[in-house]
């Protein structure tokens, strides 16, 4: 019983230490030579017509991914339908 708890705690510690060290090394944050975000910031208002750059990226530059996310929402709906809607006595 106590060995199982020690094993679980040690695996969790190794997991967390490795994750945090990965995130420290990789250098998140503002990167000057990131030409993609520079292009988005400059061309959002005139080419898209939207002042909100987040909306422009979500709906215009990467609109196909947003269509995929809406499809995921619809798929969740169909999945919930499949599992939940049982009438009384139906298997």
């Amino acid at each position: 019983m106590i060995m199982k708890n020690i094993a679980f705690a040690s695996v969790l510690c190794i997991f967390l230490v490795s994750f945090i060290s990965i995130f420290t090394y990789s250098g998140f944050g503002y990167n000057e030579n990131n030409k993609v975000s520079h292009y988005y910031l400059e061309n959002s208002l005139e080419h898209t017509g939207s002042a909100n750059v987040v909306s422009a990226i979500v709906w215009d530059f990467r609109g196909f991914d947003t269509m995929g996310e809406e499809t995921v929402l619809f798929t969740v709906l169909v999945g919930v339908f499949t599992v939940i809607s049982l009438k009384a006595g139906e298997v």
Binding site: D65, G68, E69, T71, V72, T75, V76, V78, G79, T82, V83, L86, V91
Partner: peptide
């Protein structure tokens, strides 16, 4: 994104018979 569509649709298909 498409991998997520595939995964969630397959969760629904695995649970299809609901037994």
């Amino acid at each position: 994104v498409f991998f997520e569509i595939l995964s969630i649709a397959s969760y629904g298909l695995v649970a299809f018979f609901s037994d």
